[in-house]
């Protein structure tokens, strides 16, 4: 394992501390653990908290700030944060308008956030939750825990965060978050694995000419493995699955080409070049495109495409002001 770290057990702590030192105007770290909140608490609004394992930077700390999140909780690399950490985050940001937890659909994340919610509710804090499940690589059937929450989560942060910033009620903020979840679909792939520092070995292996289609953001195996193809052909494979899932025809969309951590922007633009062409050919309008690293998987080489079907209200909220380390609008 070759990584720019000091010691395996300090990875998360030093990452969060370094992030706070980079953005002192935006972020403040709580003493209790790897929890960041806005440098200045804003009252009179629904407070948004999200989080998950570390290793997805800039998610989730990078989305804390005006118009997006109020707190982000970072667990160990690729491991859900613990209930006590989440609870401290909730307590710190809670307002009388309530708290919305934005959870990615993983068994551990859901359990830990729900335990934290129970703890906060015992103290009289009003807490609601939404669970993001945008990954079309996973069958949404009785036989799985449902689809995983991946890069589409960033759209939930942006749009629900924008509505919360206006002082809207908890029920409305939750409703718009659910509307985004219902309208966003993502699919990813990888050509090279990543290594969790504490484990020291890659999470999976791929031969030089192989790729994993439908991979999750923790390097979990996807739908299948096949021989590496050209960028355009890979885009076709991913888009086919996304477009088959909900009807985008005639809709305006927001597109996210998300780098997995070690994919150069050059390649992401090459991928977007074809995404835009395919969508244009199918009569799907692109209202806004995001190309970059939004929800990474350490140094994995790969990317995901997210496609959000927009309403006029979502468009407004997508464009509404945001000022966070990772997204400014």
């Amino acid at each position: 394992m070759k990584k720019l770290i000091n010691s395996v057990d300090q990875v998360e702590n030093q990452m969060i501390t370094g992030m706070v030192k980079a953005y002192p105007g935006y972020l403040k770290k709580l003493d209790c653990g790897n929890v960041v909140v806005r440098a200045e608490k804003k009252t009179g609004k629904v407070a948004l908290i999200s989080g998950g394992g570390s290793g997805h930077e800039p998610a989730h700390g990078g989305y804390v700030g005006t118009g997006m999140l109020d707190a982000a909780v970072a667990g160990a690399v690729f491991t859900s944060p613990t209930p006590d950490q989440i609870y401290e985050g909730i307590r710190e940001i809670a307002t009388d308008k309530g708290v919305l937890m934005v959870i990615k659909n993983y068994t551990g994340d859901v359990m830990n956030f729900e335990m934290a919610r129970e703890m906060a509710e015992m103290e009289g804090i009003k807490v609601e939750q939404v669970v993001v499940n945008d990954d079309v690589a996973v069958d949404n059937s009785l036989y799985t825990v449902g689809r995983r929450g991946v890069a589409g989560t960033v759209f939930v942060h942006k749009i629900a965060g924008a509505l919360a910033e206006t002082g809207a009620d908890l029920a409305d903020v939750k409703a718009i978050a659910e509307e985004v979840i219902a309208n966003v679909r993502t699919m990813g792939m990888a050509i090279r694995p990543c290594t969790v520092p504490a484990s020291g070995v890659p999470g999976f292996e791929l031969k030089d000419d192989e790729m994993e289609i439908g991979i999750g953001i923790h390097g979990e195996p996807g739908t299948h493995r096949e021989t590496l193809k050209s960028a355009d052909e890979i885009v076709d494979i991913l888009l086919e699955k996304i477009l088959a899932d909900i009807d985008y025809s005639g809709s305006e969309t927001a597109v996210m080409i998300n780098g997995a951590g070690a994919t150069p922007l050059m390649e992401l633009f090459i991928l977007n070049n074809h995404v835009a062409d395919v969508l244009a050919k199918k009569g799907i309008k692109v209202y806004k495109t995001f190309v970059g690293e939004y929800m990474t998987s350490l140094e994995m080489e790969g990317f995901s495409i997210s496609l959000l079907r927009l309403t006029d209200r979502m468009k407004e909220l997508l464009d509404a002001p945001a000022d966070t380390p990772a997204i400014k609008a």
């Binding site: 160990a76 491991t79 859900s80 944060p81 613990t82 209930p83 993983y106 551990g108 830990n112 335990m115």
Partner: peptide, 12 residues
């Protein structure tokens, strides 16, 4: 265990 393990095994 709940406050140090994380993931699904921690709560379980």
């Amino acid at each position: 265990l709940v406050s140090t393990v994380g993931g699904a095994s921690g709560p379980l």
